[in-house]
Design a protein around this nucleic acid. Structure first.
Length: 425
RNA sequence: AGAGAGUUGGGUGAGUGGCUUAAACCAGCAGUUUGCUAAACUGUCGUACGGGUAAUUCCGUACCGGGGGUUCGAAUCCCCCACUCUCUGCCA
């Protein structure tokens, strides 16, 4: 959620930012925000001064009562009841205006960083760099959904029987590969100075609002309706909400958390031809990194996270590229997002395996996540997060890129975790 | 799940209708004393929104788990909800 003051003080920049995102009627919406805010302030002033008057009368009554001057007190009471009605109606207008303003602000996305390219769709994303060799595979190469059947390591039909489409069952070396990757990712994060967190994987409504899944995107989440809980779509939700309504000390920065969780996404209506196999699931595993940063250092933190994720991909010997998302493709809450895509050599496609974003103060504003600076001012912190990494597509590209006639070779770095070096017969 | 007891500022904890934004103590911060540390003493110590000012500052309003109500006036009385603790039950 944007700050009204930011909109007021940087009207032109804000407008330009929204236009970069192709946000419709940007100018009208921003003007409406300022109008509502003005109305809110005016109403508050009126209400407060009347309330003040009423409080003074009440004090007088208190004094008179103590002195036993009941009649005088009764006289004053007649004034206050009149004021009370006025205060009540101003109060109604105030809270209604405030609510309207909040709802409107909820619909406005974050302002893109100046380096974000213009554009409407994924086609307009900027390729920042490409790394690694694309492996030359034999002519009879197979996509991962064939390989997992061939070696009997992941079973979609079984998952359908137990839960439904998009809930695969990992078996034998498939299950062990999952476990190895999770441990590898967590150990790497620990080495890089992250604090490991195991959060709940169901969250309440407040948490959903805190990170912006609610309102509007409740359809993306599975919901335990009886208890009003939501299955998390990413560990970002519970981990970032740890810091909801928190005032940190400046010396607490940087805060670096990592957590492994299963993730659940309904992905309603988003199934198509190229989402076969592991490319898109209802349940998958992910290791997520979350940074809380001083506003002055958040872009350094973003670069650090990007390099960290790239390091993981290099260790896994996967060819990848880094994209800077354009205004039209960026998430609602993000100011700057890098996507990391791995080349999956049998599908001959780039697959997104990580998305690293700086939200600046957009999330922190909703979360009321602040810090006290040296000069005792309370200021919104900056939040960032990224996948490090999402498992299914990593598994898909490891399987596809490393396939040979005799089996699938595992990345060297995983062998100590796996206890085997090849998935074969 | 049932019964009972609770929820007050960073912490402990007082406060059953007006002089309580809230005692006291501890921690924190600033200062005095001191060769240094410690101790002692003095002061300071919340958040949000709004307003006045060139500015330190000052003023108003709201906030004692959350929401609603009674009242001229609520931390205090009433209702609903959430959470915590104890006992009983169930359970990995």
């Amino acid at each position: 959620m944007l700050l009204v003051n930011t909109i007021r003080d940087n009207f032109e920049n804000t407008l330009a930012g929204l236009q970069k995102r192709n946000f419709p009627n940007a100018q009208d919406v921003l003007i409406q925000v300022l109008d509502l805010d003005n109305k809110r302030k005016e109403t508050q002033s009126q209400r407060d001064s009347l309330q003040s008057e009423s409080n003074n009368y009440s004090k007088e009554i208190g004094i008179l009562m103590r002195e036993g001057k009941k009649e005088e007190a009764e006289k004053i009471k007649t004034f206050t009841s009149e004021i009370k009605d006025k205060v009540k109606s101003l109060e109604d207008i105030f809270s209604q205006t405030e609510e309207e303003l909040k709802q409107l602000l909820y619909t406005i996305p974050n302002i893109p960083h100046f380096s974000v390219p213009k554009g409407k769709s994924a086609e307009d994303n900027e390729i920042v760099l490409t790394h690694g060799e694309i492996p030359a595979l034999p002519d009879n190469k197979q996509p991962h959904w064939e390989l997992i059947k061939k070696y009997d390591i992941i079973d979609f039909e079984l998952g359908t029987k137990i839960a439904g489409a998009g809930f695969p069952v990992y078996k034998g070396k498939g299950a062990r590969l999952q476990r190895a990757l999770i441990n590898f990712f967590l150990d790497e994060a620990l080495k890089a100075g992250y604090l490991e967190i195991q959060p709940p994987i169901l969250v309440n409504e407040d948490s959903g609002y805190g990170t912006g899944q609610l309102p509007d995107k409740e359809g993306q989440m599975y919901e335990a309706t009886v208890d009003k809980l939501f299955l998390i779509p990413t560990a970002e939700v519970p981990i970032t909400n740890i810091y909801r309504d928190v005032i940190l000390n400046e010396s607490d920065f940087p805060i670096k958390n990592v957590g492994y969780t299963p993730c659940f996404r309904r992905e309603a209506g988003s199934w198509g031809a190229h989402v076969r196999g592991l490319n898109r699931l209802h349940q998958f595993d992910k290791v997520e990194i979350v940074h809380l940063s001083h506003p002055e250092h958040s872009y350094q933190a973003l670069e650090e996270m990007s390099l960290y994720v790239q390091g993981l991909l290099q260790k896994l010997e996967l060819p990848y590229r880094v994209l800077r998302l354009c205004g039209g493709d960026m998430g609602f809450t993000s100011a700057l997002t890098y996507d990391m895509e791995v080349f999956s050599a049998a599908q001959e496609r780039w697959l997104e395996v990580s998305s690293v974003s700086n939200f600046e103060s957009f999330q922190a504003n909703r979360l009321k996540l602040r810090f006290k600076s040296e000069d005792k001012k309370t200021t919104l912190a900056h939040t960032l997060n990224g996948s490090a990494l999402a498992l299914p597509r990593i598994v898909a590209s490891i399987l596809e890129n490393n396939q040979t006639e005799t089996g699938i070779k595992m990345p060297k770095v995983l062998v100590p975790y796996l206890g085997f070096d090849t998935i074969g017969f």
